[in-house]
Simulated scan of single mutants.
Amino acid sequence: MTSVDFNAWHMPVLTVETIDALSVKPDGLYLDLTAGGGGHSAAILEKLGKNGRLYAADRDPEALKICDARLSGIETSATYKTVHASFSEFPDWLQQEELGHVDGLLADLGVSSHQLDSSARGFSYLNDGPLDMRMNPEQSSTAADILSAIPESELVALLRLYGEERYATLIARAIIRAREKKTINRTAELAQIVSGAVPPHARREGNPARKTFQALRMAVNGEQQELAHLLHAIPDVMSQGGRAVVISFHSLEDRMVKQAMRRWQSPCECPRDFPTCVCGKQPIGHQVSSKPQVATDEEIQDNRRARSAKLRVFEFGGGVA
């Protein structure tokens, strides 16, 4: 496969901005925790020299195979290793001596183009396939499993929280009624149920199933919980001057990232009217920019999935958590 073929499998977003933000050192230790098709990992590896090291991790074993194939074709004196792991398993797979010495860490929270486009994976509301949505096919519960048992009130809450769906009550009611007649186990079935549940004008504002599928995907893969674990673990692995880069695509995820970076920068919990800090919590670094970087118009034209991407950067150094 050529670089064009790999990008067809999955086109990474904000690649130039990511590499700039990581400020890659030739002899550094770098982690790409969402390697996917290897686009970002390849760009990092190309910057590394003889003593440089890269870990490319992902929870999707199929993606890791593609990533490994891509990285193996790069001429480099650096070393790399692929790791099959989710955020919740981080940093258990790092060597003890590597803790506190990571120079750069990347987490791209988006879903890969291949996952979305492959009907067999069950992520897409545009193509019929099994209602699966597991990023790691080795895990047990699928989207169909969740829909077969979730109470209506919990489904409403899920659609509102993860999908920010204004018609959550109508959609949840329609799903419950439909599953009483037969199990919902195909993506086309679910998309049709959602379309029939929302008001006619909502169907003219784009595919009405988009937010429902997003909410289910986040629930199936425990994305909020996985991200919370990662954000808690990051400070313990970073070196002085090391940078963490996180790319989010959903307001809930971006809010979690933004709040975590604010805590890292300003951890003091003392009341504002205290003249001096008595809690003892000191900053462990600073946000490189208070505002996220977004894709250029040119990138969005080439890759529409980049339109909602937000990149945030934090540089570690100074103080203790």
Rank of each mutant, 00 (worst) to 15 (best):
R186S: 03
T169V: 13
G122P: 01
L126T: 13
I184N: 08
T183K: 14
Y125N: 11
D117K: 13
S124Y: 02
R134G: 03
A149F: 00
I193P: 11
G122N: 11
L155A: 01
R160K: 15
A174T: 04
I175Q: 05
P151S: 09
R177V: 01
L126H: 15
D128M: 07
D132T: 06
L170A: 12
P199Y: 13
E165V: 12
R186L: 06
A202H: 07
I176Q: 06
E189I: 01
M133L: 05
R134C: 03
N185S: 15
T142H: 01
I184F: 08
R160N: 03
G196V: 04
I146C: 02
S148M: 02
R160F: 06
H201W: 12
A120R: 09
Y167T: 00
G163A: 10
D132S: 08
T169I: 08
P151C: 06
R173F: 01
S195A: 15
P137Q: 03
A168H: 11
F123D: 02
T183R: 14
K182N: 12
L158C: 11
K182R: 13
E180T: 08
A202I: 02
I176N: 00
S118C: 10
E152R: 12
N127M: 13
L158K: 03
M135S: 12
A143W: 07
Q139E: 14
G122W: 13
N136S: 08
I150T: 11
L155N: 05
V156Q: 12
I175W: 09
A174V: 04
P130Q: 07
E154V: 01
Y167E: 07
L161H: 10
E180W: 04
L190W: 12
A174P: 08
G129F: 00
R186E: 02
R121K: 14
V198K: 10
G163F: 08
N127H: 15
A144E: 04
A191T: 11
G122M: 12
Q115V: 02
